[in-house]
């Protein structure tokens, strides 16, 4: 029990609970099942991306091209829809094609980072702009509505089981898969090892380049899944719909206790981080706070979270450095 309380995830959870209590006073609508489901469903895309981003940040890197990659995949599948038959096969094809395109984009990032050894922030800023430029060129910035979507896709998008929308199940699957990889597979442990100390990782025979390539490709894979979720949720493809979402994604991961310098982080924490950000935004909307103030608050919370993390880490290190002075 003690170890649970000591964990970072627990303190984030407590903040979430506290926030919920406060918000339930602000608005009577807040503490309803419907509102909660809305919050979660509305943030499935961010959560899927944040799950992937957790791995990237654990290795000590960052990927700012995720939102752009998701949009790119969404635009491609949106255009693909008119060629797909009105049958369930279309869903299957979709779930094959979208992740593959995502993986290709992610692998390009990963190769540039691992083989050519360009800092990830530079690589992904580059791909972010390339993708955004191409998307605007191809779509003219125009919105694609659901008129040419195959019917089964719309059925899929509206599907609910036990009153819970399909997208929530999709997120659950993604989270469990990633948690399993991180906790119980060799590649997942290698991700943590590289983030802990890359020099040691190389010395014990871990293939550094392969692991880096993996985290970016996996990020791309989840961007592909997120593209399906985004299209299903909005029932449209908006080339500008996800502009700037990468910042929220990174914020959620950091809020969830993942160390921005790598080595520490968990899927559970990230999900709590997403929930925290989502509830905060929902609360501010319910409390009729202007959107620009929402941005200010979100930014401030990120800075505070990272500072807190750094300070407590340094305290811990300082404690270890102490010398036993004779009385």
């Amino acid at each position: 029990m003690k170890s649970i309380i000591k964990q970072k995830e627990f303190s984030i959870f407590m903040i979430v609970v506290l926030l919920c209590v406060v918000l339930s006073f602000v608005s009577p609508v807040f503490l309803t099942f419907e509102n909660f489901l809305d919050i979660i469903e509305g943030n499935v895309v961010m959560a899927i991306l944040a799950v992937g981003m957790t791995l990237v940040i654990i290795t000590g890197d960052i990927d700012v091209s995720v939102a752009a990659a998701t949009t790119a995949v969404a635009v491609i599948i949106g255009n693909l829809f008119s060629f797909l038959p009105d049958s369930w096969i279309s869903i299957l094809i979709l779930f094959l094609i979208a992740p593959v395109i995502g993986i290709i984009i992610g692998a390009i990032n990963g190769l540039l980072v691992s083989k050519i050894k360009i800092p990830a922030i530079v690589v992904t800023l580059g791909t972010l702009n390339i993708i955004n430029g191409l998307v605007l060129y191809l779509t003219n910035g125009q919105y694609l509505n659901s008129s040419n979507f195959p019917k089964p896709f719309l059925t899929f998008a509206n599907f609910e089981f036990l009153g819970i929308p399909i997208l929530v199940y999709l997120l659950t699957a993604v989270a469990i898969l990633t948690w399993f990889i991180l906790k119980h597979t060799l590649i997942g442990r290698s991700v943590l090892a590289i983030g802990g100390k890359s020099q040691s990782a190389v010395r014990v025979g871990i293939n550094y380049n392969k692991v880096k390539l993996f985290v970016f490709a996996y990020m791309g894979f989840l961007a592909g899944i997120a593209a399906i979720a985004q299209t299903a949720y909005t029932k449209a493809v908006d080339p500008n719909g996800l502009l700037g979402v990468e910042m929220m994604v990174i914020a959620a991961v950091v809020l969830g206790g993942t160390n921005i310098q790598g080595g520490r982080g968990s899927i559970q924490g990230t999900l709590l981080g997403v929930l925290l950000l989502a509830i905060m935004q929902n609360g501010m909307i319910l409390a009729h706070i202007d959107t620009f103030w929402q941005k200010v608050v979100t930014g401030a919370i990120i800075v505070i979270a990272v500072s807190y993390d750094q300070i407590s880490y340094r305290r811990q290190q300082a404690k270890l450095a102490k010398i036993e002075v004779e009385a």
Binding site: H184, T185, L186, I187, G188, S190, A193, G205, I206, K210
Partner: peptide, 15 residues
């Protein structure tokens, strides 16, 4: 760590 470095990346870790 390092014992399994030669194995496939998806190998399950035996805690």
């Amino acid at each position: 760590i390092g014992r399994d470095s030669h194995k496939k990346p998806w190998t399950k870790v035996k805690w």
